[in-house]
């Protein structure tokens, strides 16, 4: 699905990612954890195609294609979805209109006819139910006046609508109360299939109580310093990130 090899990237000349390698196979859930400022969101931004991040070295292959050469909207249409850490407000644009445009762009890309208004509305209803989202959200402008929790749930709803092959959730759990957290996690679990994959970026372990990752990576100072199974997340929760930092420093000294 996704192969990242020795990826280095910088923002305004400052090196952030310092050589990341990672492989995500179909059907897998990867968790990327790490302290603030370790480069987690930058990695998500590179994968989604944000232009302010400059890739200086390395390759990213997605479904056999060179991902770094693709425009952001083409990556989206090829099945990459980014759940934003801070979802953006677009005043005056209804969720219905926004999603309809997006869904039909995806369909066009696949050579399908646009959905009729009634089919589209049915799809919205079904997906809303699936991810347990208040149906009123869909009648409002994109994220405008949404609470933090509503915005995050709205990201999961959009993910359900667009049925991505690879979903990257960037700290989708931050700022959520326990109910919202459960809804977000349930959404992911319901959308999980053998042929799609998730990268769940999180600072805390608690999301991983609900979403069971296959692989956990710890990102620190622009590098993946540890990779293990789901037990790593629990260990991190107990011990915090300091022991990782120490371990890294000791390694450097050694």
């Amino acid at each position: 699905m996704l192969i990242i090899n020795n990826l280095k990237a910088s923002i305004e000349g400052k090196s952030i990612l310092k050589g990341i390698s990672l492989e995500v196979k179909p059907g897998e859930i990867h968790a990327i954890m790490g302290p603030n400022g370790s480069g987690k969101s930058t990695l998500a931004a590179v994968l989604a195609g944000r232009e302010f991040v400059e890739v200086t070295e390395g390759t990213v292959s997605y479904l056999g294609k060179n991902l770094l050469e693709m425009a952001a909207e083409d990556r989206a249409k090829e099945g990459i979805f980014l759940g934003f850490q801070y979802p953006i407000e677009i005043p005056g644009v209804s969720m219905v209109n926004f999603m309809k445009t997006a869904v039909n762009e995806h369909r066009k890309h696949k050579g399908l006819e646009p959905l009729s208004a009634s089919d589209f509305l049915k799809m919205m209803r079904d997906k809303k139910e699936l991810v347990e989202i208040d149906s009123k959200l869909a009648n409002r402008s994109v994220n405008e006046g949404f609470s933090g929790g509503e915005k995050k749930k709205n990201e999961i709803f959009q993910m359900a609508m667009l049925e991505p092959k690879l979903a990257i959730l960037d700290e989708t759990d931050s700022g959520l109360d326990i109910d919202a957290l459960r809804i977000v996690a349930n959404g992911v679990n319901k959308l999980k299939r053998p042929d799609n994959s998730f990268i769940v970026i999180t600072h805390y372990q608690r999301l991983l109580d609900y979403i069971i990752p296959d692989v956990v990576h710890v990102l620190y100072d622009g590098r993946i310093v540890k990779t293990a199974g789901k037990e790593l997340a629990i260990e991190l929760e107990e011990k915090g990130y300091d022991w990782i930092k120490k371990e890294v420093e000791n390694n450097v000294i050694a």
Binding site: A48, G49, R50, A71, A72, E73, A76, K77, F81, L82, F84, P87, I88, E89, I90, F98, M99, T101, A102, E105, H106, H109, V142, Q158, L162
Partner: peptide
């Protein structure tokens, strides 16, 4: 940010 948000959902910049 708004344009990128749309791009990320598969919508071109012009649209």
């Amino acid at each position: 940010d708004q344009i990128f948000y749309c791009n990320q959902r598969g919508i071109s910049t012009e649209d």
